[in-house]
């Protein structure tokens, strides 16, 4: 069988599908000062999993606000700087109008995923932290 660390090099998806891979990648991102990219990516996935039913509405709204406040609102933050202005406006509108679709963060997640795939992920595969692990 292929060792996990070789699978991690196959695709970002393989890396993010493995607990050890996530842990190592997050350690790397933390060193680079951009662990928020990964946290945001998982927060978007977690939010989408929350079912929009009556008993969940308060939680969903609170969570959407928390994600917005922590990652999107702060224009200096690494996540906010990588999300397109139109995408940020869309999220802001949804949060302010309290119309929170499960897919509200999907576009932002896609944009952050592209940033990770184009920048952080290739750098990780060349990093000391990954090479030492292998």
């Amino acid at each position: 069988p292929t060792p996990p660390y070789l699978r991690w090099a196959g695709s970002l998806h393989s890396l993010l599908d493995d607990q050890d891979g996530i842990h190592l990648f997050r350690t790397f991102l933390k060193q680079e000062g951009c662990a928020d990219l990964l946290d945001f990516w998982f927060a978007c996935s977690g939010f989408r999993k929350l079912e929009p039913c009556e008993s969940n509405e308060e939680k969903r709204l609170k969570l959407a606000k928390a994600i917005y406040k922590k990652y999107v609102l702060d224009g200096q933050g690494i996540v906010s700087r990588q999300i397109k202005p139109a995408t940020k406006s869309f999220i802001k509108d949804c949060v302010l109008k309290q119309l929170i679709d499960p897919a509200v963060f999907d576009q932002a997640q896609t944009e952050i995923q592209s940033t990770i795939e184009e920048n952080s992920y290739p750098l990780f595969l060349k990093s000391d932290i990954y090479l030492e692990y292998t």
């Binding site: 493995d18 050890d20 996530i22 927060a43 999993k49 939680k59 994600i67």
Partner: peptide, 20 residues
Amino acid sequence: IDSEDDLLQECISSAMPKKK
């Protein structure tokens, strides 16, 4: 603030793979 952070952490953890 704490409960917001807890909610966020719970959300992030819920999206991570559970088993290896």
